[in-house]
Amino acid sequence: MAHSGISVLFEGTNFMRLLGGLWVTVKIAAVALIFGIILGIILGVLRTFKNRPLRVVLRLYLEFFRVVPTVVLLFLFYYILPRQMNFNLPADQLATLVFVLWVGAEMSDIVRGALISVPRHQIESGKAIGLNRFQLYRYVLIPQSLTLEIPATINLATRVIKTTSILLLISVMDVINIGQQIIEANNHTYPTGVFWVYGLIFLFYFLIDYPLSWWAKRLEKRRLEKANG
């Protein structure tokens, strides 16, 4: 075996294809996070209302998406729903939809938790100066809850990015799927190629996720410093 496995990465268009796969991964995660966070903020605010049926429905929604594993959700939306109700979407759009709903559910809990932990006197002061409910949320609760939400949200973002690796199960051409194609295509010529391909994928995920988690840590630290003087 004169040739080393690393050359498998640079043969033909392999490297470009891996980057293309990474783009699919990043795109799905980014779109899912943007829309999921918006949805989560709306749902989170609604969950602090004192309306019973509304809270029950939202709670059920949250528990459903939190308890059911993402793999099962993907299979449910990709294979079972189309069979039952003629609901058909291409795999990557469907993956984005499932992730938006999932992020929305997780985010709603983060937002709710942050909103109810804003000190009570802040709300009362707001009421005292005659703010209505919308103004109370707009000027008092939401701005103050943001700093509490950010680290947990970034944490959620890194989880979403990592979870995209299961998308290959519903045939999304993400970076893992392309990696496997390359490994299998070169199994006979480069038996050690598997190490290099997965090594590169590891590096890709690390380069995306590590700055995020570093940023989360820094924000958290800064918040604590601020809070404790």
């Binding site: 033909g12 268009t13 194609q181 390359i182 299998e184 295509a185 070169n186 199994n187 006979h188």
Partner: peptide, 14 residues
């Protein structure tokens, strides 16, 4: 298949 040479796979040109 996308990963079963020589039946269905992706070559180095994608």
């Amino acid at each position: 298949f996308g990963d079963l040479p020589p039946y269905g796979w992706v070559n180095k040109d994608g």
